[in-house]
Write a protein that binds this DNA or RNA. Sequence first.
DNA 1: GCATTGACGAAGG
DNA 2: CCCTTCGCCAATG
Length: 116
Amino acid sequence: MNKLKKNNEYSFFEDVFEVVRQIPKGRVSSYGAIAAYLGTKMSARMVGWAMNSSHKVKPLVPAQRVVNRNGMLTGKNHFETVTQMEELLKKDGIEIKNDTVQNFDGLFWDPSKNLL
DNA sequence: GCATTGACGAAGG
DNA sequence: CCCTTCGCCAATG
């Protein structure tokens, strides 16, 4: 499957990982925002799909900081444990209520605005 | 090679 | 205001 990857063309997966790693502690971002930063704003799904491999890449990607546009921890089910995601976010100082990031609007981190 | 699914999002009813 | 439908792109069956 691998090995014959176009050396010039890195999957946008790595781009997603890189952006997610840039998310500051205590902040969260959304799939759509990351997708938009990568240019594929219409395909936020692809970002989520990329996160599917986030657990197997070298520098673990803080996927827990990436939630949907509603601030809901939709991907918690894909973590080692369903509580892992909210626990990690709580450690970052983010309050989680009912699997949803509180004050999501205030904690939201837009890569296109901050990373640029 | 076509059909289904997926950690989303915006629009329509 | 809540729920349903469509669109996107890629991977898997």
